[in-house]
Design a protein around this nucleic acid. Sequence first.
DNA 1: TATTGTTATACTCTATAACTATA
DNA 2: TATAGTTATAGAGTATAACAATA
Lengths: 142, 142
Amino acid sequence: MSVNYGILPSLIGFNLRRTQVRIFQAFAETVGRFDITPGQFGVLEIINSNPGFNQSELGAAMGVDRSTVVAVIDRLEGRGLVVRAPSRRDRRSYALRLSDTGKDLLAKLQPLVLEHDRLAGQNLDDSEVKKLIGYLQKLQGT
Amino acid sequence: MSVNYGILPSLIGFNLRRTQVRIFQAFAETVGRFDITPGQFGVLEIINSNPGFNQSELGAAMGVDRSTVVAVIDRLEGRGLVVRAPSRRDRRSYALRLSDTGKDLLAKLQPLVLEHDRLAGQNLDDSEVKKLIGYLQKLQGT
DNA sequence: TATTGTTATACTCTATAACTATA
DNA sequence: TATAGTTATAGAGTATAACAATA
């Protein structure tokens, strides 16, 4: 069955979306064995790289509202991966950190994720991947 | 506040996701005035370019399950933009098409979307945008 | 038997508004 | 008064499984 996509294939946004969906599906098939979504991996990585962040800071880093962070951390805390430790300097907030289980899992995930991402980019050579990431960061304003 | 993103910035998937979120936010601020999401614009564009498609064909074109299509079309039909016409050759299915209102709206949206996408890519010159889209299509396997 | 649209159900991700405890 | 976390609520988007009608 042949499909006419109209102006969609000429749009950056459409191609970005399609590519991202495809890569997330591949992520689910590989890293997903550990019941971790791309977003959850990102949260673990950010908490691990910024121990002591509170939920608002984490939300700002991820670009989501702090109310959204609650459920995300609820899930990860419920699985024993993240700890809400009381913050010393501000009794309203928590200092987030990975549990030992969380650290172990992240250490296992990192090489898997790197391998997944390498596979996702296998249709491009190294210099093309670099240029692609450079373009994407320019689009982000970075 | 400075954030350490660990290995995330080296990943194609992470950069893809971030860029896409940013572009969708810009879409919401411009095209969103018409209460249309990027996905809904895609549906209108595909139906317009393939009049007579049934819901299963539309789902296949979009890469989603046919059960997902039901709610999408319910919304657009409820707003008078899409028509579920009885199909002649198969009484189980509908021949989808845009209503006159839908066609008028799409005609208004197309230049807006093209302008939005042009703005989204303003940090890149034309040849870079072409290369970017080429890379993305390679990643999709196209 | 297989396919089309549908429904029931469930889960993720997201946001806004209002609440409480604290600053 | 402002901020941090939370809750209630809502909506989009997604899927699986089962069903009736039709092929």
